[in-house]
Design a protein around this nucleic acid. Structure first.
Lengths: 345, 345
DNA sequence: GGAGGTGAGGCAAGCGCTTTCCTGGCAGCG
DNA sequence: CGCTGCCAGGAAAGCGCTTGCCTCACCTCC
């Protein structure tokens, strides 16, 4: 691998001069030497060693991002927003998938710290887990103490800059909508109970129902993985146990798609017999049949805001931006059927 | 930020000893000193500077991956395979999205070279573009000349280790299947013509049709972006120009989903009036309505193989692994209707 | 008791680059 | 003609870490 001094030698200059030419330093270099250096660079196919550069300048420029899984459309959208702002500022992004494993999340904070990133962005739900929260906060505090910036998306436990989707209002919106449509027997297909996203959305839903004197008993909430397959199994269990339901609320769109698939496989008409509501408004939501009624979160915007917060030197006080949720009515919801729907099995 | 010498000073040892304790070197260190060092590490929340480490050891361990877009399910699946093998070998992955921009792809090769990655994996279709191909090959050759390993997925232009999905056979499978079902008027919703993936799949399809004396005229092939929206617009154009079609082949599942959505919006029954076939078998394919008939590619496997090739020191001769395509019959295809279907508009 | 052996720990030389400070040459000026 | 000032280019000191080699103390054995 060619090094700077190889280039310098070939160009007949000192490494210092070569470095200045290559990095476009403000220090002037005669046209002739500049030429020679560039020529040598081309001939040797020289590429600077990024690690040596990072070590030599004290500058830190990359930004680390920890998400549950980039291939999950929810995070893919957020990441798009993060990328956009990062690219605008010429910054490299290091993306790490925690796959919803708190330990891995902790490890990645260390790793990013070791990579000397300028900021760490934690996207994705927090956990209801005191020990983990303490550990995470310790690590983040240590990082911040050395000048690192931290921004979180949708997490409560870290007292710093944050952007928060309004999950609770989103839940309320769903509750109000379904009540409006005449639904009284409502079931929930929920994500893992340890995720704050799950509990926040559930809380909002409960609040809206309570406002109309309705309650949502525990046995009508089924927890499963926050993905399509989780949606399938939770919906199956829910339907078997509570055949009188007229509406199913899935706490994210992936689960909603699983619910839709299961209902179709059981020949339950949506929305004629059972209405289905999702959450997030992932791109695919409008392409399933029936098109999914859901709550839209401005995911790209959330990512962009978080990155802006992280890159902005930051006010003394922690800044929290709450982004609104919005009801998107499509074809998977309708008026509650008059009588308890007939099930095919 | 605490450094190794801070740790050493606090523990009252030399940096050398501290380093040895921290990295579990084979050189023995007395229990007492070890204790003191670990204590200091904990107290200072010390994390080694990854760049300094990389510079000091000549070891290169990270692997770079260039894909079109991780959030595209096609690449998400491939990436999953890459990750699995990389994780097994304790290697860090750097993932770069080229967003199908050849220039960006070139830049990323440089960047990864600068990051001293042990290998670069190029996933995603090649381009029919001689200049670009030459440039890319030059850069890759320069990288390989310095001991870097390269593996490509689904590209022809690089003469090295490669894993290739059998796109052509996949195309043939579709042609045979549709012919079998009685379709004679077939249109294609294709990705960009510059992508080898597009042309390979198209070639296979044409071959299968030609085997039965059918031809696929250019005007029945519509090129658009390889995503859902591209599928919508291309299908709309195709339908307007060629109302007698009884089958639409989308050259990937995203486009197929767009096609399905457009057909639904025009109240064209699938598969009663028009059959639709996709390609790739992304996870969502089974969840749309009607469930998508498509060609399955072993995406995760492709990723895993590519990573194995890249990490394996490598034989003298370039290794090429072709992974088979397989027809997956679902609900979006059926027998060709007897008469030209009636369109709602 | 001295030679030789052993093993823990430290010294210092890098890894490849940036950047401060210095040098030496030249023009301009009194 | 000698001095000052300026400027392009180079020497060298790190950045934070690893690691080969050396030292030194302590044993062991003849």
């Amino acid at each position: 691998m060619a090094t700077l001094s190889d280039v310098a030698r070939r160009a007949g200059v000192s490494p210092a001069t070569a470095s200045r030419v290559i990095n476009g330093s403000s220090k002037p270099v005669t046209e002739e030497l500049r030429e020679r250096v560039l020529q040598a660079v081309a001939e040797l196919q020289y590429v600077p060693n990024a690690h040596a550069q990072l070590l030599a300048r004290s500058h830190r420029t990359a930004v680390g991002v920890i998400v549950h899984d980039v291939s999950d459309p929810y995070f893919a959208e957020i990441t798009r927003g993060l990328q956009r702002v990062a690219a605008d500022q010429g910054r490299l992004l290091m993306i790490c998938n925690s796959y919803r494993d708190p330990d891995r999340e902790l490890e990645y904070v260390e790793l990013l710290r070791g990579q000397q990133v300028a900021a760490i962005i934690l996207a994705g739900s927090g956990y209801h887990d005191a020990t983990f929260t303490r550990l995470l906060n310790e690590k983040l505090a240590a990082y911040e103490a050395t000048g690192g910036r931290v921004a979180v998306i949708g997490r409560h436990e870290h007292s710093g800059d944050a952007v928060m989707p309004d999950n609770r209002t989103g839940g309320r919106l769903i509750g109000a909508e379904l009540y409006e449509l005449g639904h009284r027997e409502i079931g929930v297909v929920a994500g893992p109970a340890v995720l704050t996203t799950t509990t926040d959305r559930l809380t909002g839903l409960r609040e809206a129902l309570a406002a109309h004197g309705l309650s949502l008993p525990e046995h009508r909430v089924r927890h499963a993985a926050f993905d399509r397959d989780g949606g399938v199994t939770a919906t199956a269990a829910l339907l078997d146990a509570e055949p009188e339901l007229t509406a199913i609320v899935a706490l994210n769109d992936s689960m909603a798609i699983g619910a839709l698939t299961l209902l179709r496989s059981r020949s339950v008409a949506v929305p004629a017999q059972v209405s289905v509501v999702g959450f997030d408004d992932m791109p695919i939501a409008r392409d399933v049949t029936p098109a999914l009624t859901t709550v839209r979160l401005p995911l790209v915007e959330m990512g962009a805001r978080a990155m802006s917060l992280a890159l902005d030197p930051g006010a003394a006080a922690p800044r929290v931006e709450v982004l609104p949720a919005e009801m998107v009515r499509r074809d998977s919801t309708g008026p509650a059927p008059e009588v308890t729907p007939v099930r095919s099995r």
